[in-house]
Amino acid sequence: MSAPVAAWWPLRLARLLAALLRVGLAQALAYRSEFIVWLLTTNMPLVMMLLWTTVAKDAPVGRFGQAQFGAYFLLTMAVRLLTGSWVVWEMTMEIRQGTLARRLLRPVHPFLAYCAEQAAAVPLRLLIVLPLLVVMVGWLGTGQFSREPLHWCLLPLALAGAWALLLSLMLLIGALALYWDSAISLFELWLALYFVLSGYTIPLELFPAGLRAVVTWLPFRFVLSFPVELALGLPSVGAALAALAVQWLYVLALFVAALTVFQRDLRRYAVYGG
């Protein structure tokens, strides 16, 4: 039979996305125990918070006193929990084991399915993040957070950008697995740099000025530090807008690169064992 013809493609896409999201959520719920335990293993920000609040006990470090460090690292934890993704491991495994064939046989681009599956897990992520935010506000009050309304308007976009940037990077590295068996090692390299350059362990503001000037425009910041900076009101409005534009440019560039690599290297795919 030929493919059905629908009148309006956005409506078809919306229906398809709704179905993919429903199934993705059902799968995330089926794995709820493993998923929540996995989220809870993200405890590095708590360790760093204890470390830096101790350092700042007698005197602030730059603009950061104990309360600022507390807010910074709890927000860092929240952003990481909310915007995380596991698609690079799933994709490289599917390519190695040949099970990507299952996705290729369906008239839906595999990237759309991957994105929907990852997006479907966000409600579960919120179940962990919301109590964390409540604890944070109860402990620190609201004094540490931005008073600039535009920061709060930009925050959802910056969070979506952080999620999309990491996902696009993972799709790109996953697509490289069609050509290079050890592509996952690239992601390990990314993680090694990310831990230092994203603000995960040290606020970027505390970097030496020369290094900070470079790190500010590298993609690592936009995956983690930038939304945290917005919530804390650290950047000026102009700098925040510029950073948001750069963040989404990174998203676009990485997603297009991922699509290009995927379409090109699919010709090499051997579907071993699939």
Partner: peptide
């Protein structure tokens, strides 16, 4: 092809949406 942790009915429903 079936979604491993979900009932086949969910895969059927997903295919309904995918194949419109």
């Amino acid at each position: 092809q079936l979604l491993w942790d979900l009932p086949p009915a969910d895969t059927f429903e997903l295919n309904r949406a995918i194949y419109e």
